[in-house]
């Protein structure tokens, strides 16, 4: 079959007539070292395609568009709003505040958690669909802060819900909150490729 080199169509050649193959297809694969993308079939026919595990792709999508539940309780809420405003812009990270818990990914608990508020917090956390993360912002949400051992304060929001990132400060600067969000993004990316099987060949497991 005549192959017209100048046509813009991508045509997949047949296996026998394939030129320029020094080693057979699949010879670059070594178990335990990961697929060498330069030798893969797909790279010879579609040279500018990116391959990745689907987990990593989903993690990239999730971390680049984190919708936070607008949940400012106390003083830290003002710094959270400042972080969303135009000076320290959180929108460039894809972070948008969303009032409804049913469509939010992250809950930034900003402020003191009071015992009267504990039930609503649990309800809101359970209303958020998976995957969801929690950032505890400020020292009140971390461990009670300046109201340590007061009669009506819960010593940190991690008594109620699991927390992923703690941002210390009273109140933390907007830059600190942005750093916390970036740490959460790294965590989302790393968690996607983590596997829990025994004897796994994943690089992350060896580090632990």
């Amino acid at each position: 079959m005549e192959i017209d080199q100048n046509s813009p169509n991508i045509h997949i050649p047949r296996l026998e007539g394939f030129t320029g193959a020094e080693k057979p297809l699949g010879a670059g694969y070594e178990p335990g070292k990961g697929n060498n993308p330069a030798d893969s079939v797909l790279n010879r026919v579609l040279p500018n395609a990116l391959t990745a595990k689907s987990d990593e792709l989903f993690a990239l999508a999730r971390k680049s568009s984190l919708w936070t539940l607008s949940f400012g309780l106390a003083c830290c809420a003002i710094e959270m709003i400042s972080a969303h405003a135009s000076h320290h812009d959180l929108d460039r990270f894809g972070v948008v505040t969303w009032p409804s818990p049913r469509q939010a990914d992250v809950m930034i608990v900003a402020g003191t958690v009071v015992k009267k508020m504990a039930d609503p917090i649990k309800l809101l956390y359970e209303q958020m669909p998976d995957p969801k993360w929690v950032i505890a912002m400020g020292s009140c949400a971390t461990n009670g802060g300046p109201y340590y051992k007061s009669y009506s304060v819960v010593m940190g929001v991690d008594h109620l819900i699991p927390v992923d990132v703690y941002v210390p400060g009273c109140p933390p600067r907007p830059e600190a909150l942005i750093y916390g969000v970036m740490q959460l993004q790294e965590k989302i990316q790393k968690d996607a490729t983590q596997s829990f099987d025994k004897g796994s060949s994943d690089k992350n497991d060896e580090e632990q």
């Binding site: 015992k115 504990a118 051992k149 009669y151 009506s152 819960v154 010593m155 008594h159």
Partner: peptide, 19 residues
């Protein structure tokens, strides 16, 4: 359902019960 009157001096302020 809060037990006691926290404003009073007789309230055990320094004994905190874990939530």
């Amino acid at each position: 359902g809060f037990d006691g009157y926290p404003g009073r001096k007789s309230f055990p302020f320094h004994e905190y019960e874990e939530w």
